[in-house]
């Protein structure tokens, strides 16, 4: 009985986090981006500094008609948003937020599982783009695929460096093994992981799969209403998950300057939100890379860097 209760509680908490933290990041994007451009951002919805803007957006999306194009592959088209969104929820289950049992499920193969499932999320975009029967959607999907190919490798190589240093694939194990000197040691890895994560999320400056000035909105062009909202939620859930992962792997997760055991989850959330702010900051500061520049960055910069990181970790480990 208590076991069921605990499982139910964990599911509710994780689901709650999954639904609220992406909105928090979205609101932060609204406000931070606005102020970086000398604007105020949403001010009206909800009264105080537009805090309810995303709730209002959600209500609007729910009211819109969900159109399926006549030529579209109906089933795939309708399934795609769920495929894009669900993996992030699944990944969230395995990420440790605090010390001890503050994790949905402590998997021995946590890192492996997480990286494998995150790849599935990109499939949702591919499915949507293919099933839309629209040339812009298809172009966006193909670009997504190319980006996935290019950035999955540096992502995995830099994550492997951490797993090597910790001697375990379990995410809780990695955080427990974490020492402060990993910060400088894994600096290159952290940079590569974060950059590759940005590219995998199709966030600016790596957003050519949805480049609105070229291909309207890429794979999401034909989507309306709640399905479109699902894709948007997937993007922000993706930011949360990737920032959480970067925190757990490279920034020591729940380790903090004091009160690790009591305030562990708070340290994790603070680091995650700081990283999410960096994601937004990069979006405002940098223009979009061209498709070939993106590929060049992945294959000639990030992969050699991640291999160098592996080498450094290996040498330190042996010494």
């Amino acid at each position: 009985m208590t076991w069921w209760l605990e499982v139910a509680l964990r599911i509710v908490v994780i689901f709650g986090v999954f639904l609220t933290v992406p909105l928090l990041v979205g609101q932060m994007e609204h406000k931070a981006m606005a102020h970086m451009q000398g604007r105020l951002g949403p001010m009206a919805a909800g009264g105080f500094h537009g805090w309810a803007q995303l709730v209002a957006d959600g209500v609007k999306f729910a009211q819109k008609e969900s159109v399926v194009p006549a030529a579209a592959d109906r089933k795939i088209f309708q399934l795609a948003p769920v495929v894009a969104l669900l993996p992030y929820l699944v990944v969230l289950v395995t990420i440790p937020v605090g010390p001890g049992t503050q994790v949905g499920v402590d998997l021995d193969l946590g890192l492996f599982f997480v990286l494998a499932v995150l790849g599935v999320a990109v499939l949702g975009t591919l499915m949507g783009g293919w099933a839309s029967a629209n040339k812009y959607s298809l172009l966006g999907a193909v670009r997504t695929a190319a980006q996935l190919m290019a950035y999955e490798l540096p992502l995995i190589l830099s994550a492997a460096s951490v797993a090597m240093a910790a001697g375990t694939l379990s995410l809780t194990g990695i955080v427990e093994q974490w020492r402060w000197y990993w910060l400088p040691m894994q600096l290159i890895g952290a940079f590569v992981f974060f950059t590759a994560g940005l590219a995998e999320l199709q966030r600016p400056p790596f957003d050519m799969p949805v480049a609105d000035s070229e291909i309207i909105f890429g794979a999401y062009t034909e989507y309306t209403g709640l399905r479109f909202a699902f894709f948007l939620l997937a993007e922000y859930a993706g930011i949360v998950v990737f920032c959480l992962l970067t925190t757990v792997l490279f920034l020591g997760g729940w380790h903090g300057p004091f009160a690790d055991q009591q305030l562990g989850w708070l340290w994790t959330m603070l680091k995650t939100l700081a990283l999410a702010f960096v994601v937004i900051w990069l979006r405002v500061s940098y223009p979009r890379l061209r498709e070939d520049q993106l590929q060049k960055l992945a294959w000639t910069v990030l992969i050699p860097l991640s291999l160098a990181q592996l080498l450094i970790t290996g040498v330190v480990k042996v010494l």
Partner: peptide, 11 residues
Amino acid sequence: TFKTMMHRSHT
């Protein structure tokens, strides 16, 4: 961008 964020907005 960070400096702009720290200043008052023009709106």
